[in-house]
Simulated assay, not measured.
Amino acid sequence: MRKVISLLCSLSIIFSLLASTMDAAEINPKKLLEKKYPRERVTVSKSIDLNGDNKKEHLLITDSNNFYFINSKGVIVLIDTNYYNEEDPTFHIINISPKEKHVAITLDYPPSNTELFVFKYQDGTLKKKLSIIGDVSIQISKSGEIRQAWKNYFPEGGWDTSVAYYKWNSKKDKYVGSGELSR
C-alpha cells in the first residue's frame, strides 16, 4: 500500500510540473491581457522570440491605444500609451543579430506622415531606443537600417526632401543617425 501511495504521489507531482510548463508554453496573450485588464480589447498583436531563447514574447496594442508587452513567463508590462492613428499600428521586427531583435512600431497619419518607435528587449521589458517622424516616409531595410525622409522647410516657403539614416550601434547601445537629421 505504501508503494502505491508513493507512486501516486510521485505521478501527481510529475503531472503538475508538466501541466505548469505546458501552460507557460501555451500562453494566449489576448486572453491573459483581457483577464487582467477587462476593459482592454486587443486590436493588434504579434508573438515572436526576441532574445533567441526559443520562447515567445508578445506585443499587443489595445483599442484604448496602449502598448503592452508580455514576456515569456506571462508577466504583463505597459510599455507606452497614445498609439492612435486612423489605421492600425504596424509591428516590424528588426534582426540585429541571431539572438537579438528589436521591435519597431509605425503609426501612419495620412496623407504622408509616419511615426516610428523602436524598442530593444532589455532586462525583461522593452526600452525605447528611437523615436522619429518621417513626414515624407520611413523605410526599414532588411539589414536593419532605417531611412527617414522629412520635409526641410525654407524660411521663404516651400521645402526640399531631406534624408536621414539610422543604424544600430551595439557599443553605444543606441541608434546612430547620419545624413540630414531632422531638427
Rank of each mutant, 00 (worst) to 15 (best):
Q148P: 00
I96V: 15
N113H: 08
I140K: 11
N71R: 02
P111H: 03
K36R: 13
R39I: 05
D108Q: 10
W150L: 02
L32R: 04
K127Y: 01
D160M: 01
T161L: 13
F69N: 02
P89A: 07
K128V: 08
W159S: 13
F117Q: 05
S64W: 07
V77P: 00
R41Y: 03
A149G: 05
T81N: 12
F117A: 11
T125K: 15
L116H: 05
I70F: 01
F67Y: 14
S137G: 03
K101P: 04
N51I: 11
D63N: 14
K99N: 11
I105W: 00
T114M: 15
I105G: 00
V75N: 08
Q148R: 15
N82R: 13
N71I: 14
L107K: 13
E40C: 07
E115M: 11
D88S: 12
Q122E: 15
D108K: 13
K73Q: 15
N95L: 06
L78E: 11
G52C: 07
H92N: 10
K31I: 02
F91C: 00
N85M: 06
Y84F: 15
N51F: 10
L78T: 11
H102T: 05
T161P: 11
I146S: 06
E34P: 11
N51V: 09
F117S: 12
L60Q: 03
I93G: 04
F67H: 02
S97P: 08
E87H: 08
L33P: 14
P110A: 03
D135F: 03
I133S: 10
K56F: 11
E34K: 08
T81C: 03
N85T: 13
P111T: 06
D160K: 04
N71H: 04
N54C: 06
V44Q: 11
D49M: 13
R39K: 11
F91I: 02
E145A: 12
L50P: 12
R147M: 09
Y84N: 09
V163K: 02
E87N: 14
K101V: 07
E156D: 12
R147N: 02
A164G: 10
E87L: 14
S45G: 10
N82I: 12
I61P: 14
K55T: 02
Y68G: 05
Y109S: 08
S72T: 10
V136F: 07
S143R: 04
E100Y: 02
I105Y: 00
T161W: 12
W159V: 04
N95K: 14
I132L: 14
H102W: 03
K30Q: 08
G158F: 14
N95R: 11
N85K: 01
V77S: 13
F119N: 05
I138S: 04
A104C: 06
D88T: 10
V103N: 06
K127P: 01
G158K: 07
N54M: 12
Y83K: 13
I105K: 00
V42F: 02
Q139G: 10
L33A: 09
K127C: 01
N95V: 13
F67N: 01
S162M: 04
K56W: 06
E40N: 10
N54I: 07
I48M: 12
P111Y: 04
Y83F: 15
L78N: 15
Y121S: 10
